[in-house]
Amino acid sequence: MFESLIELFDEYHLIAAFAVIGLTMYLSNWLSVRFTNGKFHGSAIAILLGLLLAYIGGVVTGGENGLADLTLFSGLGLMGGGMLRDLAIIATAYGVRFSEIRKAGVHGVVALFAGVIVSFLAGGIIAVGFGYTDPVDITTVGAGTVTYIVGPVTGSTLGASSEIIALSIAAGLVKSILVMIVTPMTSRIIGLDNPRSAMIFGGLIGTTSGVAAGLAATDARLVPYGAMTATFYTGLGILLAPTALFLMVRAIA
């Protein structure tokens, strides 16, 4: 009986995921209204719940896809995977005014470069602080701090060890997950309440999943602006980290 139930969930995984996420959203919105008077967004609670469940899923299964590694919830991987996420992000652009994007355009580009370089330096400095001296190691950890995709791409280009690459992925994951949690809490302090600052935020932070979830938990109307710049971030990181930034590290170290 129980086994055939799991089999059914596995077979109809995407549909099951819709139902599970719908329930999570309902519960989160209820918690938001009931305990925080709506001050803490329902979506922020749902994202936190999701991360918590992902942690449990990861610890239980030892897999890489959080809760989606449990057969019962395998559809979450498809629903929250890159394909549907990008489709939904693009759909948020519907109804956006082009003039808003043009207004912040230059600042968005500045933010992109500043964001990649600052994240890279943050990772590099911490690596040096922990006693790493090889420019390849320092660069790889720095690149991983840019995003968890830039890290492994840079590391394998430069020939870093798999331990360092794993470390760089972890640094990127910490950044991404922290952005999801911290953004709604700090949005007021950093003035994240208009399309312009959202575009700059997207450029500075860059990690697509972090920006996507962070803005969703703050104000869903800002999502297209932040996502617009963030989408160039990983590419720029892959462009800069193994080349210009590596040469810079090698010159200093």
Partner: peptide
Amino acid sequence: VVAMAASQN
């Protein structure tokens, strides 16, 4: 995005 959060490592 919630499903994405739930499938993060």
